[in-house]
Amino acid sequence: MFQKLLLAFDGSPDGREALAQAETLASACGATVHLLAIIDPTESMLIVEAMSYIPDNQRFVLQSVLDEGVRRLRRAGCTATSEIKYGKPAEQIILSAREMNANLIVVGHRDQGTLARWLNGSVGESILHQPPCSVLIAVKPEQPAINVTPIRQLKARGKG
């Protein structure tokens, strides 16, 4: 079903959840995973003496994150590649998916408040307006509350 997955990956906790879900899916389908990191020049640019540039260390850090993701996928037996692009994230994800004829785009879900979403927009939401293929928005499973004792433990203690 899915043979070519495009994973938008930045190394964040949300991105790592997307990587884990892409790994599971790619392993099950025998799919190739292409990890894509995007540097948005409008957010990354430094202005120094009326000249703007993107710091080299940002590209280096992103490449290290991508390399780590590719190694993880390859250890799981998946075929994986990576790339860094510059531009608006949603546009670059859509363009890359079209270029590689992706069957599925995988992105992480970053929980933003209403104001942040309104100001910054949501990459996942933007992709859904003109998707070139199916889209998986990976959401971390909810963690159980720390102060809740599982029922099995209560019964073992004779309280149930």
Rank of each mutant, 00 (worst) to 15 (best):
P131G: 03
P41N: 06
F2E: 08
T81H: 14
Q63G: 03
R71V: 10
E17H: 04
D56F: 09
I54L: 12
I84S: 00
S96N: 11
V106A: 11
G160D: 10
P141A: 03
Y86N: 13
T24C: 00
I38T: 05
G30M: 07
R110M: 05
E49S: 15
V70N: 07
H129G: 07
I137G: 02
E17F: 03
L46W: 07
P131F: 02
D111K: 13
P132D: 09
V123Q: 01
I84C: 02
K85R: 14
I47F: 13
I127N: 01
N101Y: 01
A138M: 00
I137A: 04
C29K: 08
Q63V: 08
R157F: 15
D14L: 11
P132M: 13
N57M: 05
E17Y: 07
G124V: 10
G113C: 02
I94E: 03
H109T: 15
A28W: 09
G113P: 04
L73K: 00
N103D: 15
L154N: 06
A26T: 09
R16Q: 14
S12E: 12
L62E: 02
D14P: 10
T149W: 01
A31E: 00
L19H: 05
Q3V: 02
L104Y: 08
E125V: 05
V139S: 07
V61E: 15
V48C: 03
R75A: 12
W118M: 11
H109C: 15
G108H: 03
P89L: 12
G160Y: 03
R117E: 13
P55L: 05
A116H: 07
D56K: 06
A50Q: 12
V139T: 13
Q58T: 11
S27P: 03
T32D: 14
P141C: 10
H109P: 05
S44W: 00
I38A: 01
E68K: 11
L66G: 09
N101P: 03
M100I: 07
A22N: 06
R152E: 09
Q143S: 15
V123S: 02
L95W: 05
L154K: 05
I137E: 00
A22R: 01
M100G: 00
G11T: 12
T114H: 13
L119N: 03
R59I: 02
G113D: 09
G11F: 11
F2N: 02
Y53L: 15
V65I: 15
L128K: 14
Q143L: 15
L73Q: 01
D111P: 10
A37Q: 08
A26M: 14
R72W: 03
A97Y: 05
E99S: 09
G121I: 14
Q3A: 10
L36K: 14
N147H: 12
S27D: 07
Q21V: 01
I105W: 06
G87Y: 14
V107R: 04
C29I: 08
Q130A: 10
E125I: 06
V123G: 04
P150I: 10
D67V: 01
Q3S: 11
A31R: 09
D111F: 02
S134N: 12
A31V: 08
A102C: 08
A76T: 08
K4W: 07
L5N: 12
T42S: 11
N120K: 08
L5Q: 04
I54K: 12
K4L: 04
P150F: 14
I105H: 02
A138H: 01
E125L: 11
K155A: 12
D111N: 14
G158L: 10
R16H: 12
A145Y: 14
I38Q: 06
